[in-house]
Every structure is written in C-alpha cells, then in structure tokens.
C-alpha cells in the first residue's frame, strides 16, 4: 500500500492536489474560529451557493478564467450578508437563506438551460460535491491558490489581535477607537476568498464543514484563543492531508472523504475534551 502511495505521489497532479488541499484547509480553519464564535457558521454555506451561481454564469459566458467573475460576486455578497447579519438576527438569517437558496436555484436553472454537456447531472454533482476537480488543477490555478493563501495567512497574522478583539467584544473595540466596520469588511473579503478557493477542493455543499469542524473540535479541547486557533489549523491540515491520501488510495471522492475525516476528528476531540475536562492552559 505504501508503494502504491509513493508511485501516486510522483504524479504532478497528485502533488498539486496536496499543496492546494493543505493551503485551503489552513486558510479555512483560521477564520473558522471567528465565524463559529460570532455565530456566523451559516455564512460559509450561503456564500458557497452564491459562488456556485456565479460559476454557472461564468460557464455560460465561456469565460476562460472564471475566478474573475466568481470572486467579486462572492465578496460583494459576503459584505452584504455580514452587514445585515449584524443588527437584527432574524433578518440576517433570512437574508442568508434567501441569497443562498436563490443562488442555488438560479445556478441550476442556468446550467440546465444553457449547458451543452450531455452529462448534466454529473456536472452539477461535481460542482456541488467537488468530486475530481482538485485532481485536474492547472498550474495556473495552483499558483492563484498559493498566492491567495499567502495573502489570507498574512492578513490573518497581521490582524490577529484585532480580529480577536472584534470577535470577543465588538462594542468595546468600537468604543476604544477601533474601526470595527473596516474589520468587518476585511473579514467578509477574506471569507469570500476562502470560500471560492475551497470550492475546488470540496465543492460548494461541503465548504461549511471545512470551516466549522476544525474550529469546533479545537474549542472542545482548549480554553484560550491562541491554542484554539493553532489547534484548529493543525487539525484541519492533517485531516485534509489524510482525506486526500485516503481518497487517492481508495478511489473515493476527495471532498466528502476530507469532511468524513473531519467529522471523525471532531468526535475524537469531544471524547478527549470530556476525558481531560478541557486542557487548562
């Protein structure tokens, strides 16, 4: 089995998949902690559907680089959602549900009407669940992904303390002179970028899992923000790595395998957290 794995690892497309998978897992887990704590878990879901809708439009327009359309549309939706989600909770929920389901419906409709492919169901399925697209990445896509990931990680590191402050207590941060609105905008943009990146890996339906599970697992075991963030990143990267390797060996779909590994990790974390009563650091 090890031999098969080693032969596979020699293929450039497998190497690409691993690099991209690890980077996406890292980025999504960093922001996951903030999203879960701010009760924004569902935003990932909504945005991924928007990205799906945008993707179908790009496909119909036969754009060579569909990122150019998907990214701006998703960022715009993220900003709108984070703004409405702030004041009145119910309205925010409804707004996300509306945008997400609407985008999904339109996306499918557009695909249905304009698609020239004979295997429509297969196409839809692969956009929604990611199936094999990560194994067919072009070099250009890999570089875009590396570039965006570096930007996300850098921004996160530079603003780490401020992201913490805004997540913990927005009013206090605002009262003591932080430009909270600017940070909300920044968060929305990063989230949108991550969602668009992650669509390649796990498909639009499973993105939330990538964002939420590592953060929830880490929160089970640790009681301070730094440890939770680091643990969530480590967990997420390892789960992605394991998931991709398993899927290569067993021939299972990449996205759902990664998410399955994430779920198992969450269950283990719950058990560890229970046993240790939370590691007190």
């Amino acid at each position: 089995m090890l031999e098969t794995l080693l032969t596979y690892l020699k293929f450039p497309f497998v190497q690409n998949a691993l690099v991209v998978g690890i980077l996406i897992a890292l980025c999504s887990s960093l922001l996951g902690v903030t999203l879960v704590l701010k009760r924004f878990s569902y935003i990932g879901d909504g945005l991924s559907h928007v990205a799906f809708g945008a993707m179908t439009i790009a496909a119909v327009l036969k754009m060579t680089n569909d990122m150019l359309l998907i990214l701006p549309i998703t960022i715009l939706s993220a900003i709108i959602l984070l703004r409405t989600g702030q004041n009145t909770k119910i309205k925010g929920d409804a707004a996300i549900a509306m945008i997400s389901v609407g985008a999904l419906a339109f996306g499918y409709l557009i695909m249905n009407i304009f698609s020239t492919s004979s295997n429509l169901a297969g196409d839809v399925c692969s956009t929604l669940f990611g199936s094999t697209s990560i194994l067919t990445l072009t070099d250009e896509e890999v570089w875009i992904c590396i570039g965006l990931s570096i930007v996300v990680v850098l921004v996160f590191l530079l603003f780490y303390h401020r992201i913490f402050a805004v997540t913990f207590d927005e009013s206090f941060a605002k009262a003591t002179g932080m430009r909270v609105e600017a940070y909300r905008l920044l968060l929305a943009t990063i989230i949108a970028v991550i969602i668009v990146l992650a669509m390649n890996l796990v498909g639009s339906l499973l993105i939330s899992a990538l964002v939420i599970f590592p953060a929830l697992s880490a929160m089970r075991m640790f009681g301070n923000f730094k440890a939770v963030t680091v643990c969530s990143a480590v967990l997420s990267v390892n789960c992605a790595l394991l998931g991709i390797l398993i899927s290569i060996l067993a021939g299972t779909p990449v996205g759902s395998t990664i998410v399955a590994v994430d779920v198992v990790a969450f269950v283990l974390s719950c058990i560890i957290g229970k046993i240790m009563g939370g590691i007190k650091k």
Binding site: F164, A165, F168, T176, G177
Partner: peptide
C-alpha cells in the same frame, strides 16, 4: 468564548 484571561486583558490595549 475560548479565551484566556491574559488575552482578554491585553486586548484592552489595542486602541
């Protein structure tokens, strides 16, 4: 919220 006392007190210095 998973945050240590130290992290929270320090965050008051951000302004």
């Amino acid at each position: 919220f998973p945050a240590s006392v130290w992290e929270i007190v320090l965050s008051g210095c951000l302004g």
